[in-house]
Write a protein that binds this DNA or RNA. Structure first.
Lengths: 274, 274
DNA sequence: TCATTATATTTATACTAATAAATACAACAA
DNA sequence: TTGTTGTATTTATTAGTATAAATATAATGA
C-alpha cells in the first residue's frame, strides 16, 4: 500500500510549540488572567535553555492566539490578555474561506440563534442598553437618505450586536456576533442594493421598534415571535448576496487596503517564468 | 482625562504581520488552495527585504492559523493547507476559558443545533454512513461492561460526530462538532458517573436506534422529534458536570501530559521571591 | 530488473550577536 | 506644579552561521 501520509500523522512537535504549551499549562494551572505578566524574554531563554528566536516564536504563537500581548519598553513584555472573540472569529473565517457557504446557510443558523438570543436577554437589559437601542433606532430613521443604504444596514446589524452583548451565554453570543460580522463584511463587498430597499429598511425599523416594546413589557413569547418574523423576512431579502460568500473571507478588516495587490502577486506575475 | 489605553488603539502593526497579511491577500486573490506552495524562506527574505527571523515569524502566524504547513527537505517549504476546524476550535476554547460557561448553556445551544443538524442530513446519508452508524451502535451495546462508561460516552458522542460530518452546512457542522468535542473532553476530566448511568446509556442507545430508523424512512419530522427528545433527556442527565467547565479549556488534547507541571510553575514556585 | 541503501541537496530549525525602536520612569528646569 | 528631557529597560528587527530533517537521485546488491 502507498501508505498515504494522513494529516493526523504526529509530526515531531517543534520546540517553540512545546514552550508555548508549557506556558499555556502554567496559565491554566495558576488560573492567571488579564494583566498578569510573563517573565521577560531573557528569563525565558535561560529557563528553557533555548535561543531568543525560539522563545520569540513561542510567544508569537500565544500572541496570534490572542492569549498575550507583547509590548516594548519598561513594564512591557508579555502580559496575559484574556482573548476576545477576534482570534476565534478570524480562525473560523479562515476555515470557512475554503468551504462553500451561502446566505441560505447563514440564515439557517441565524433564524435559530437570533431568536434564542433575543429570548435570553429578556429582563436583562439595563436602562443604558435601552438608551443605546433607542439611539440606534433613531439613527436608522434619520439616515434614510440618498445613498446611505450601507450605513443603514450597518446600523441594523449593530442593533443585533447590542442585544448579543447583553446575552448571558458566551457561546451563543459569540455565534450570533460572528454571523453579524460576516453579514456586515458581505455588505461591504457586495453592496446589497435591491430596488425595494426602502421598504425593507422600513420593515426592519418596525421590527426593531416592536422588539424594544416587547422587551419593555418583559414578554418573552412576543420577543421570540417578532424576532422569528424579523429573521424570516430578512432571509427573504437575501437574494442579493446569495452566492459569493467565503470569497474574501481571509482578509476581513482590511477592506480599506483590499485594492493593494500583494507583493507576492506582483513578484510572481512580473517574472512570467516561475 | 486619564486617556484610557483602550485595546482598540491601533498599535503600529509589526512587520511580520504586514508580511503575513500580504501573503494572505495573495492566497485570496489567486484563490489558491491545498498543496500550492509559497516561495522558500530565502526568496521571501529577498522579496520583502526582511531578515530571516521576520519572515519566519510571518510564516509562523500563518502556521498557527492553520493556513500553511512547514516542511523540511526538497519539495518542502511552506505549502498551503486548507485549514480544518482545529485552529478555529482551539481559539474558541481559548476564548471560552476566560468566560464562565456551564452545562446548561451548552445544552441551550445543543438542543437547537443538533435538532437542526439532524434534520439537515435527512436524505443525505450514504450506505457507508449507515454502516458506520450501525457499527457505532453495536459497539455501544457491546461494551455495556463494567467500568467502560467513559468509552460508552465517547461512542455516544461519536454517533453525533458522524451525523455532523454528513451535514451540508459547514457552519452548522462546525458548531455541533465543537460542542461535542467540548463535552467529550469534559468527560475525560470529570468522569460523569451518575448512579443511574446504565439507564441513561440504554436510553441513548434507544434514541440512536430510533433515529436511524427515521433516517431510513426519510421522515424529517420524526428525526426532529426524536433528536429533540434525545437532547432534552441528555440535558436532564447533565447535573454531574454542571459547573467547572472552562477550567481546563486551554490545554485540550494534552490530557495525557496534564500531570506535568510547567517549567514556569516549577521555576516560579522554587524562587519564592519573585 | 527490482529493491535497498548511500549520498547529496534542499529546506526548515535553532543558535549567537548586535543594533534599532519604543516606552515608562526619573531627573530636571521653568 | 508643570512640562521636557534623558536614561534605562524591554521588545523588534537584522545579520550570519550551523545543525537536523526530509527527499530525490545515484549507487549498490540480489
Amino acid at each position: 500500500m502507498p501508505q498515504a501520509p494522513l494529516p493526523t500523522a504526529k509530526r515531531r512537535p517543534k520546540l517553540a510549540e512545546l514552550i508555548s504549551d508549557d506556558i499555556k499549562r502554567w496559565i491554566a494551572a495558576e488560573s492567571l488572567g488579564e494583566g498578569d505578566r510573563l517573565p521577560n524574554e531573557k528569563a525565558l531563554m535561560e529557563l528553557y535553555g533555548s535561543a531568543k528566536a525560539t522563545v520569540r516564536e513561542a510567544l508569537k504563537i500565544l500572541e496570534v492566539e490572542g492569549l498575550i500581548t507583547l509590548k516594548t519598553g519598561p513594564k512591557g513584555g508579555a502580559v496575559i490578555n484574556q482573548p476576545g472573540m477576534e482570534p476565534a472569529s478570524r480562525m473560523l473565517r479562515n476555515f470557512l474561506h475554503f468551504q462553500q457557504l451561502d446566505g441560505r446557510q447563514v440564515y439557517q443558523l441565524r433564524k435559530l440563534l437570533e431568536v434564542e438570543l433575543a429570548a435570553s436577554v429578556v429582563g436583562r437589559l439595563t436602562e443604558d442598553d435601552y438608551r443605546q437601542l433607542e439611539a440606534n433606532m433613531t439613527a436608522c430613521t434619520c439616515c434614510g437618505g440618498e445613498e446611505d443604504h450601507r450605513r443603514q444596514r450597518f446600523l441594523e446589524l449593530e442593533f443585533h450586536q447590542l442585544l448579543a452583548r447583553a446575552c448571558p451565554n458566551p457561546l451563543l453570543a459569540f455565534m450570533c456576533q460572528f454571523l453579524n460580522d460576516m453579514l456586515r463584511d458581505l455588505v461591504v463587498i457586495k453592496k446589497a442594493y435591491v430596488p425595494e430597499r426602502k421598504q425593507f429598511d422600513h420593515a426592519n425599523q418596525d421590527y426593531h421598534r416592536q422588539l424594544v416594546e416587547a422587551y419593555r413589557a418583559d414578554d418573552t413569547q412576543r420577543v421570540r415571535r417578532i424576532m422569528a418574523e424579523h429573521m424570516a423576512d430578512a432571509e427573504s431579502h437575501m437574494s442579493a448576496l446569495e452566492a459569493e460568500m467565503a470569497a474574501q473571507m481571509l482578509i476581513q478588516s482590511d477592506v480599506l487596503h483590499s485594492h493593494h495587490r500583494s507583493k507576492l502577486h506582483n513578484f510572481l506575475t512580473d517574472n512570467t517564468a516561475v
